[in-house]
Amino acid sequence: MNAAPNTPAAALSRRTPRRRLSAFLHRHAGVRLSLLLSAPMLWLGIAYLGALAALFAAALWRADTFTGDLIREVTWANFQDLFTTEVYRTIALRSVGVAVAVTLIDLVIAFPMAFAMAKLASPRAQRWLVIAVLTPLWASYLVKAYAWRVMLSSEGVLGWGYGLTATIITLSYLWLPYMILPIYAGLERLPNSLLEAAGDLGARGWRTFRTVVWPLAFPAVVAGSIFTFSLSLGDYIAVKIVGGRSQLIGNVVYDNIGAANNLPFAAAVATVPVVIMLVYLAAVRRTGALENL
């Protein structure tokens, strides 16, 4: 092949428009960055933040009681109803309780699992375990929830029946990978020499866990809990399938969009988990967990 000499003079003589554009982008890092980011920023701005803004705006409107038509007047009535009605308070607290329970159960199961994957398994076994953890995510959410419905039904393998407990079990199963993976990643980054150093200085297993592993893995635990907590808080399908007559925030939103045809009230209810999550994120920001996501 006849390669052209790679000198600056030769490069200048070969200036095609495409090369000129590349050179221009190379010199102007700002232009390059804005071109790359414009599409995702548009998506984030319009589809995501815009939708949230629309949700909040809708929460300040009201629906005509008879026709169900939207009346675009600003009113706090939806939020007043939400906070003064006993049943909504109960449902909100129940939803938070379910989310907390799911998060704790997942943590208890995920931590030993992640530790075994990151610190005990051979590199080969490690790869297989990661795949094993990820595999359930390839199956449809509905299929998995119905599988639990079958197992939990009074004729099923477990036969525990439906209700809040069944909901917590099902949600714990569904979100477990989201807890395992961040903790696994966090423990992977933890040098083995730190565990050896603790043992070398006289610490047994439990003490090493308490003083070295847990504090250093804590941000990863919080990262995992953000997933399990928020996914549980927003869920309404699992509870419909295995929850019996129990209701969570998601169901209230769903029922107000569907049967009640009261979109503004549904929007007001939907802001509740958003606010809870914002409070939660603000609280965990200090742990450094957000750098672990």
Partner: peptide, 27 residues
């Protein structure tokens, strides 16, 4: 290791990053 009367200086030092120097030494 915790039953042996030896201590190790590790190649990467293995200092506990979440503890102060004093807490490391007192560990």
């Amino acid at each position: 290791p915790f039953e042996r009367d030896v201590n190790t200086v590790f190649q990467d030092y293995a200092l506990f990053p979440h503890m102060s120097v004093l807490d490391n030494v007192e560990y």
